[in-house]
Design a protein around this nucleic acid. Structure first.
Lengths: 216, 216
DNA sequence: TAAGTGTCAATACAGGTGTATATTCATGTG
DNA sequence: CACATGAATATACACCTGTATTGACACTTA
């Protein structure tokens, strides 16, 4: 009696903070919220994330060993989103035309989806530790592999051969990612123009690849 | 007398730190040294840079208002290096062939030149404040403009028309930058392969662009 | 009921940080 | 010579950081 008054006061003010369990996902969401459009993960402090998620600094350790581990989790999420884009594109490809445009649009839309994991990936691609870069490279390689499959499948369907499908896929992937990185910090109608440009660029690559296949 | 003994001791140990004037350039060099291959500028503290440059924390303010201002200066330097690459490529183009390969090689070499400004640019492209991104975009636009001029000049020389030269230049630029960003964190023989890939990718774009010009 | 377990908060500590203030000194100028 | 100027320094302050320690509370399980 009288010993535990401190907590009670806090509880009164803070709406019973203990009640709801805080998950790893909550922490990831808090981090993304803090990152917004500009900050890189390395500028986030453990305390800041914990504060945003509404837990004590130390509770962070229940879910992640440190901020770096959380970052890798974010990148994994982004990779999942990326693969979702490809999978959708593949389905659309069988029924309608201009799969390129719809894929590019899907990619760009993913930039400001509810959880902006993709932006995190784009940002950590060039910044950050080796672990981050490796995680990003891994996800991009998945993407390239699926795109190559797609190109080879299309090759059989249309009869247009593709020159070095793996390289073509890589070129397209890197270009889209680069354009997406610019798009991330731009307004919506600027982004529309960027999408148009990206589509044309991809067409250049594919047309060029096919022309080089004929010549070789 | 007896009041100023503190300084004298320090002087003895530190080899007369006052003697040589510290320039803004020295601070920029110190920052690049600290950045190495992985850190982003936002992780540098003013004190850390000052320490590396061998000056007191407060002396930093004589040269830059804050770390952000120093970063923009670094990006400007990188842009100058970039324009140097284009200018060299232009001269080579008139006498020998395969200007593409030599340009790409020049670009990649610039990555680990003495002063690795280019790496800074690549890293701050996706991270960092609006000011950084704008600075980077500006430099890339310069690069694209010069490349477009080059493409148009080549168009007249060879008779091969180029489809939307501005867009073609942009595609090439963004692709090279993206490939350079991966190259920055790789070993030298991995980089050699990356250069080969980049050259082929550029050729795809140019061949595609020319084919689309004919059709349109 | 009692003990054990997992989740969180409170406190504390030893650092690092940006910057305000005042000081030291080498240098040029009258 | 005296003295103003400018560049660099030292000290100090309030703040934020990661994390170690300890204890509170809600649960299972016996």
């Amino acid at each position: 009696m009288g010993i535990r008054t401190r907590r009670k006061n806090k509880q009164e003010a803070e709406t019973s903070s203990r009640r709801t369990q805080v998950t790893a996902q909550d922490l990831m969401d808090a981090a993304v919220r803090l990152l917004g459009t500009h900050r890189s993960v390395s500028t986030l402090s453990l305390r800041e994330i914990a504060r945003e998620a509404g837990i004590a600094p130390n509770s962070f350790y229940r879910h992640f060993r440190d901020v770096d581990e959380l970052t890798v989790a974010l990148i994994d999420q982004a990779g999942r989103a990326l693969r979702g884009i490809i999978r959708e594109a593949r389905q659309r490809l069988s029924m309608e035309r201009s799969a390129i445009r719809t894929s590019v649009e899907a990619f760009m839309d993913q930039l400001d989806a509810d959880e902006k994991y993709l932006q995190v990936l784009l940002r950590e691609m060039s910044t950050g530790s080796d672990a981050f870069r490796q995680a990003v490279e891994r996800e991009l390689t998945y993407f390239e592999d699926e795109l190559r499959d797609e190109l080879e499948r299309m090759e059989k369907l249309t009869g247009h051969a593709t020159f070095e499908p793996a390289l073509t896929a890589k070129a397209i992937t890197r270009l889209v990612v680069a354009m997406g990185a610019s798009a991330a910090s731009q307004s919506l109608d600027q982004r529309a123009e960027l999408i148009d440009q990206t589509v044309i660029m991809i067409r250049m690559i594919m047309v060029g690849s096919q022309a080089m296949a004929k010549k070789a």
